[in-house]
């Protein structure tokens, strides 16, 4: 299966789902002649049509696709994304999600330290004194800036329940 066919199919699914959700928007007498669902439904139709065109394009003219795709990429290096790229991105996303999950449990500073450690190691830094120092100094700095200086109520985690403070 070609990538743009899959993309088109997913987009078509989004269009249908979005239409369905838009149809469920409550009708209010205050919303005027277009209604709160007016633009959303229009968008759903447009997206549906465009995703069909996308599928048709890639089915009908298989050869021209990569050239067209590379023509107007805003940042260099975005084109030709491989399967490995997706996998590595997923891995990094997992680290990020784990951070959000442990944040309320471990508290801000500790989670920030672990995040720094994980990302630095993800990008090839070997485990050792240097990364540990980086992570702990970074966590302390983050705490100083956001909690001490700016007074943001970052999650404290389970630490206060230990009664050390």
């Amino acid at each position: 299966m070609k990538r743009s066919v899959v993309t088109g199919a997913v987009l078509l699914g989004i269009a249908v789902l979005y239409w369905y959700l838009a149809d469920g928007i409550p009708k209010s007498p205050m919303s005027g002649s277009v209604g709160a669902d007016g633009l959303p439904k229009l968008l759903a139709i447009c997206l549906g049509v465009l995703s069909l065109i996308l599928i048709a394009q890639s089915v009908l003219s298989p050869a021209s696709e990569p050239a067209a795709a590379a023509a107007d990429v805003e940042d260099t290096g975005d084109a030709e994304f491989t399967g490995e790229g997706f996998f590595l991105a997923l891995k990094m996303l997992t680290i990020a999600v784990v951070y959000v999950l442990i944040l309320p449990v471990l508290g801000y500073a500790a989670s920030a330290g672990l995040l720094l450690l994980a990302i630095a190691m993800f990008f090839g830094r070997p485990f050792g004194f240097q990364v540990l120092a980086f992570a702990s100094v970074g966590a302390v700095m983050a705490h100083l800036v956001f909690v001490t200086l700016l007074g943001v109520r970052m999650p404290t985690g389970f630490w206060p329940s230990l009664g050390w403070f």
């Binding site: 001490t148 200086l149 700016l150 007074g151 943001v152 109520r153």
Partner: peptide, 10 residues
């Protein structure tokens, strides 16, 4: 944003 007014150290 929550803030206590310590900023004013600045």
């Amino acid at each position: 944003m929550k803030m206590n007014w310590q900023v004013v150290a600045l």
